[in-house]
Amino acid sequence: MEVRTIKVFTTVDNINLHTQVVDMSMTYGQQFGPTYLDGADVTKIKPHNSHEGKTFYVLPNDDTLRVEAFEYYHTTDPSFLGRYMSALNHTKKWKYPQVNGLTSIKWADNNCYLATALLTLQQIELKFNPPALQDAYYRARAGEAANFCALILAYCNKTVGELGDVRETMSYLFQHANLDSCKRVLNVVCKTCGQQQTTLKGVEAVMYMGTLSYEQFKKGVQIPCTCGKQATKYLVQQESPFVMMSAPPAQYELKHGTFTCASEYTGNYQCGHYKHITSKETLYCIDGALLTKSSEYKGPITDVFYKENSYTTTIK
């Protein structure tokens, strides 16, 4: 009895394709271990004539594949690729409408935090270190965002349907971005203890939790000093293409032309909904596939993004 075979390709990165001759009487799992086709788990399936010449994702289970996976995804987590594939199996079914010149995501599976993050990423200057993220990001900007969303979920250790947080998501993504040249110098002034300067680099240099107003941050924000008295913390120097200011959701007025974009969060910790506000020729609110415009805006804002380049204080 002759062994019926077909020729397929296996890959971990969709760049390096490895030619395989597979036995049609055995499952993919018996031949390769966990195997995925377009995100779908085909591990328990036997090869079919229609699979001839198709590319299958496999887990990096030998040295060659491990090197290829690390170079593309910059992670050695053995569960990463499987999590990416199972997320992709959902995100490829989502709709990605162009809204006001940006790629958004039609609401499904509690994905409003991903839509808000995706919209924000198209408006701030950011370059990702893992080629996987950078490639998928370019495709997302062009309207094909399924891979990018699935990668975000995998890097953030999230599953489809789980509630997510924009600030946490951005923080994970910033860790995989090139923020080497970003720098922030802060000064804390206390009447009792004097003053202390701190220099922050990388992710810490672009994120701040405690106030939404970048102007206020430049002037000074009140913080408790270690001595128990009130101290003032203010920005001395900022070198970065953008800054992200966050605070627990509270009524906040966004003035046209003073910011790049913002995240609105309605609801409580267990259950809520994100919308995205962007400042173009007027203010726009993007909620999944829905767009509304207004000249002014007041609502429960939790993150505001500002364009920056270089700032030095005039406070002496």
Rank of each mutant, 00 (worst) to 15 (best):
I277N: 00
K219D: 09
Q216F: 04
G194M: 03
E125W: 05
N61H: 11
Y57S: 07
G267A: 11
N178F: 04
K219M: 11
L200G: 02
T282Y: 12
N111V: 01
T199R: 08
S263P: 01
Q175F: 05
L283F: 12
T159V: 10
A115L: 05
P60C: 07
Y284V: 14
A177T: 10
Y297P: 00
E296F: 15
Y155S: 02
Y214C: 04
D180N: 13
Q20S: 13
K46V: 14
T211Q: 07
Q30R: 11
N49E: 13
T64I: 14
Q230E: 11
L118E: 04
L119M: 07
E144W: 07
G33Q: 04
G53F: 11
G272E: 01
L65E: 08
Y28I: 06
P130G: 02
K280M: 12
N157V: 03
K158I: 05
Y84I: 06
C225L: 01
E168W: 06
Y155Q: 05
D180H: 10
K201H: 13
K92M: 10
I301S: 01
A154Q: 04
A40S: 13
C271R: 15
N129K: 12
P249T: 01
A289P: 08
Q230M: 14
K218Y: 02
L235H: 01
V166G: 02
V304Q: 00
T116V: 13
G267W: 09
Q237Y: 15
T91Q: 04
L283Y: 02
G101F: 02
A205R: 01
V58Q: 08
M26P: 06
A115M: 06
Q237V: 11
T278W: 04
T75S: 14
K44M: 12
A289K: 09
M170N: 04
R167C: 01
A115H: 02
T10V: 13
F80Q: 04
K191M: 10
Y28G: 03
Q216T: 08
E52L: 11
A177N: 04
C225M: 00
Y36C: 05
Y208R: 02
G210L: 00
S294V: 15
R167L: 03
I315Y: 15
T75M: 09
K191G: 13
V188P: 03
S246N: 00
M209K: 15
S279W: 04
H51V: 06
E296K: 10
L81H: 08
P249R: 00
L65K: 11
Q134F: 06
L173G: 03
I152E: 00
T169K: 01
T211C: 11
Y265N: 03
A154S: 07
K95R: 10
Q270G: 13
P249L: 01
A247W: 00
K191W: 07
K218R: 07
L37S: 12
N16R: 10
T10W: 09
A132M: 03
Q98L: 13
Q197R: 11
R66F: 13
W94I: 03
Q237K: 15
H48P: 12
S246E: 01
N61A: 12
M207A: 07
Q195V: 15
P34D: 10
M207F: 07
T258V: 06
T312M: 14
N268W: 08
N129A: 11
L173T: 04
T169Y: 02
T260S: 07
I6P: 07
V3Q: 13
E68L: 06
C271G: 15
K92W: 04
T278R: 07
V99S: 08
N89C: 13
M85G: 05
C271T: 06
C112S: 01
A40C: 12
L173Y: 02
C149Q: 05
G29I: 04
C182R: 04
L186I: 13
L291A: 13
V160I: 09
Y306M: 00
C225Y: 00
G202C: 03
P60W: 09
V99Q: 08
I286C: 01
K218A: 06
A154N: 05
V188S: 07
K316R: 15
G210V: 00
T312R: 15
Q31K: 12
V160Q: 04
G194D: 02
A87D: 01
V8R: 04
D41K: 07
S104M: 08
C156H: 00
I15K: 14
D63T: 09
Y269D: 15
Y252S: 07
Y306P: 00
E215K: 07
K201T: 15
S294A: 13
H276W: 09
V12Y: 07
K95S: 14
E239K: 11
Q20Y: 10
T292Q: 11
Y274E: 00
F56E: 02
M209S: 14
D63I: 07
S79A: 14
E253K: 08
A247E: 01
T10S: 09
Y113W: 08
T64F: 09
I301Q: 00
Q122L: 04
E253G: 08
N14F: 07
Q197V: 11
H48N: 14
N61Q: 10
S213K: 03
G202Y: 01
V22R: 04
G143P: 03
N111T: 03
V304D: 01
Y208M: 09
T278C: 13
M207Y: 08
Q251W: 13
A262E: 00
K44S: 12
G194R: 02
E71S: 08
